[in-house]
Design a protein around this nucleic acid. Structure first.
Lengths: 144, 144
DNA sequence: TATAAGCTTAGAGTTAACTCTAAGGTCAAT
DNA sequence: ATTGACCTTAGAGTTAACTCTAAGCTTATA
């Protein structure tokens, strides 16, 4: 049986994050001491590791919630349900990559067009391009 | 001179967003009527379009603030400052693409390993992989 | 028996970029 | 003069996934 900080050491999650995941129904301590301390058994640990693995891949906490509800009763769920979640995530990833690649193309082009030197920015071709809207847009704007 | 909704129509920004950008120092109405209505002149419009273009490329509002401070006094700034901002953004984009490509690889591999059919998930190879941590990790976990 | 490390909770704060609400003022057209 | 569209502000809400704080227990160690 592991305490919360020990589970943290095992999974790479902080105790704060573990409690946060618990609040969202992802992780549970099957035992509590009288004082309320959480104790995790082997099954709890495996579930927590599952969550961490899925998180590492990039699944959202919502996705993971769905995967976990399959996990606890595999007989009642199909492979298709699992692949649906996975494929949906893959589609999201692919879309985001496409957006970012478009940004990359634009940024690279801008960089290639500018001397990048100590000259005054008065005739900077990047500034000019931004001023004139000479740029492929139609991407979702967002931080990288 | 354009009213806020007209500037919105011109730039594709909502009046709400324009006010939000104003609060953050990106856009300004150089004229206000006595009643407080914002009126945008040509120069204001060009600045707003600059902001929208930069946003479309993927620059953050912070980045855009820096670009704008160069824009209003190009003589005092160098091309290098502009390329630094641009290159920094490009680096962010490249890092994010690398993370997402790693996710994509993992997700594709998982999908390839599973039948995806109506079979019970009892022996689903995706669930197995997640259970066993058989997955390349070390990416930032995040939504696509 | 102190002391420190670690645990508990509820709840607030963080980040980015919006997005919306409420309550009320203005303006152009009928 | 009335209607309806549009404008104003301050401030709250949204999303995702944490991250931290405060105030107070508990437990292991010296």
């Amino acid at each position: 049986m592991l305490k919360i900080s020990e589970l943290g050491a095992r999974t790479g999650l902080s105790p704060h994050t573990i409690r946060f995941y618990e609040k969202h129904g992802l992780i549970e301590a099957s035992t509590r001491t009288e004082a309320g301390y959480r104790y995790y058994n082997d099954s709890d640990v495996r579930r927590a590791e599952f969550v961490k693995t899925a998180r590492n891949i990039g699944f959202s906490l919502d996705d993971i919630g769905q995967l976990l509800s399959i996990r606890v009763d595999k007989e009642s769920h199909s492979c298709q349900e699992v692949t649906d979640i996975t494929r949906h995530k893959l589609n999201e990833v692919n879309e985001r990559i496409a957006e970012l690649e478009s940004m990359r193309t634009t940024l690279s082009r801008l960089l290639a067009s500018c001397c990048g030197g100590p000259e005054q920015a008065t005739h900077c071709s990047i500034m000019d391009a931004l001023d004139n809207g000479e740029v492929e847009t139609r991407q979702r704007a967002g931080t990288a």
